[in-house]
Design a protein around this nucleic acid. Sequence first.
DNA 1: TGTCTGACTTGAGGGCACGGCA
DNA 2: TGCCGTGCCCTCAAGTCAGACA
Length: 887
Amino acid sequence: MAVETFGKAPMFDDDDEDNMPIVFKRSSASRQNQLNSEVKHSQSQRLNQLSGRPGSDACSANGQSSNAQKRMTSLPKTSPMRPEIGSQKAAKSSIQEPLVKSLGTTLKVSDSMDSRPKQLANAAVKEENDSIHPTQENSDSEDDKPLSIRLKGNSNHPSKGPIPTVQKNKIKKSSEDSDDEVPLSSKFQMKSASGVLGGKQHGFHEKKPLDSKVHQNGSTSRDKLQKPAVVSSKRPLPNADSHSSSQISSKKPKLSDSSTPLSTNTVSLKAKQEVVDDDDHIPISQRMKMSAAVNKSSGSKKTVSKVASSSIKKTLKKSKKPVKKSKYVKSTKLLPSSGDGQKKWTTLVHNGVIFPPPYQTHGVKILHKGKPVDLTTEQEEVATMFAVMKDTDYMQKPKFKENFWNDWRKLLGKNHVIQNLDDCDFTPIYDWYQTEKEKKKQMTTEEKKALKEEKLKQEEKYMWAILDGVKEKVGNFRVEPPGLFRGRGEHPKMGKLKKRIRPSDITINIGKDAPIPECPIPGQRWKEVRHDNTVTWLAFWNDPINPKEFKYVFLAASSSLKGQSDKEKYEKARMLKDYIKNIRNSYTKDFTSKDPTRRQIAVATYLIDKLALRAGNEKDDDEADTVGCCTLKVENVKAVPPNLLEFNFLGKDSIKYENTVEVELPVFKAITQFQSGKSGSDDLFDKLDTSKLNAHLKDLMPGLTAKVFRTYNASITLDDMLNRGTKDGEVSEKIVTYQHANKEVAIICNHQRTVSKSHGAQMTRLNEKISELRDILKELKIDLDRAKKGKPPLKGSDGKQKRNLTPEALEKKISQTNAKIEKIERDMKTKEDLKTVALGTSKINYLDPRITVAWCKRHEVPIEKIFNKSLLAKFAWAMDVDPDFRF
DNA sequence: TGTCTGACTTGAGGGCACGGCA
DNA sequence: TGCCGTGCCCTCAAGTCAGACA
């Protein structure tokens, strides 16, 4: 192990701009364009490589999809399996109809399979009818229901699932049935024969100066990091740059990486049914990747919003401070694409991690059978951890107390006077803690400020890393302090002692030539120092609760590494848009397959696609008992004839998922088959796990995994709803439209939050305010009548004589009061609607930020109204998106 | 082939600062 | 000026998924 010490090397102190959000460091929008173009280029290349198509093909596909399809038809075996993105007419006439006839029930299946986008779109249409403002549909009665139920409730058919809405839609717009896999918004693009996926967004043909030329400081390493021509789908062996100071790992190549046998039999996803069976022996992904043309050029030019763009520019302008004094360039750009196992960086410098301060004993004694007990510092520390949790729900959970007691008694020792937790009274420590909290609260603003500055001063050097010469913010540079484990739901390990992490627990990852961070605790040393540039973590330690798991220190979300990865995620989801129709056709066909594994995969994929379920990995007994799609138990799904499925299970974070949906008859039948002969606790999908499912998905589209469906469905829903639902009007109304779309996505993803304790009081207060304003309105109207007749106003409710106003002034006041009432009512409605829905999670993780930025530009909404400072920094890479961008 | 390991993303909740309002 | 509500930021738990390995 190469553990070295080095002299203090203050790395970043010379920079007076450290506190500037990284997004503000970009010097100009044009520069960002340039940066993004570079990224787009490499990104596009990577996607093309992934899908096996050369960039030129992708480019030439723009606006030429019909020709491509013709070629495809004439060369069924060797020509690419191009997803239908071009001529919708062709798709409608020659593809859909024969399919419907041949599959019998397929008509309904394929129609309703696309139910969600349509349903949501319908919701948007309904919104329009009811005015853009949310209506009172979501009343209190629904608040305690899981979001999934509320999604259903949002349809016009409260007793049914998505399908009735779709059917209604179908009647209204039967002409669209043939291309129903794609929301209308997308169809418009396709029909324009010049989509947006390519063109500016991908920017293959844009040749702009490399960003590294702009970054004069340090490193041209970006150039060196250009992606290799072939992207490996496996983790490669560590390269020469990647080795540990203490050990060199030698990893064997994977022995079996398999395409599942299913792949070879998988029905062709290509909609051109006449050639389907001929190339069944070729894995679908191979067939598809030969043809898939992701890129479509943007259609018509629209006027860029002055407000939005200026607002963005304004935001960026703040960053215009020259970087002259800084030794390093702050992150403003994305790295070239970096796949798994690829070199992620060339040089990496950082200062390690900061540890929580050592425990300071307070000397307050707990009571044992009413008498004070002496405890050692260590015993007291753990007792304090327990005492301060008195007010939490954990104290009502026996498992929490039991686990705490087991760990604490080890510290007390066998012969300690305390032999039973129930004999202990922790109130004295709790009271002491409350007093300390109160003292802290009572500190003056200056004292608080001084304390904050002191903390900042201590942490400053740990907050930044230099990655390839670019100064990047570190995310979680603070080592987690010791405490009691707060597992969610009924976690079997809740209450266990999370021990203090020491330097000897921590492995540091840093550039080979960088100085090894000084161990901040004298006399101690790091566990290990590595120089592995195939990973992005700066440090890790073993999780004290689950020692086989790790806690990592990464760069912040605003870093180029994270931005790159984010963008790749959304590009992959966008790619799914071009495959989704065929994937849906494929799994629909497999609902009735004789092969039970294939049938299970088909139904599971359907559920993941339609209900945005998570994949559902297997879990150990020492984890909370939660499930995802592949781990659903028989008891989690109730089949109610003729075709309803009632889902009821605990998902991630022990969040309840409760939803009743109407499904296709073949799905219903398949589910009942999977359930037959099993007990409630048996696996519904007994022939399936996430590896098999994902292996199958990869045959359908390169890089496709279960979670891509969540990103895809979230983003396409937002895109669709925004584009259908946005009307001309006030910015505030547009924001309501956005929030509504955001809410629908949150419901789809089942992102819940607990209702705030003060919610009821807040609503009461707002109601009172409305009543007051209405009273005022009445008086004003009376005064207006009197003023028009030349009479003085009546006395106010307080008995005082009011001012004599002109009719014009009174009319103005009336109008202002009405506006106030309307605003409060709108706020109340939004507040009520969103009280159990967490919008942030989808905004951070699932919604392609380019949809939001482009919409803001098109509709003159300042981006700051939608993205806060952190999101602006996180999504810096998306800010210069073309206003015409569509997901 | 199934399980384990490692690396990363996703997610809810808590605390706190800040801004609006009386 | 102080109180209150809101939203931001941070924390850390809990997922996903790919490659390694038995």
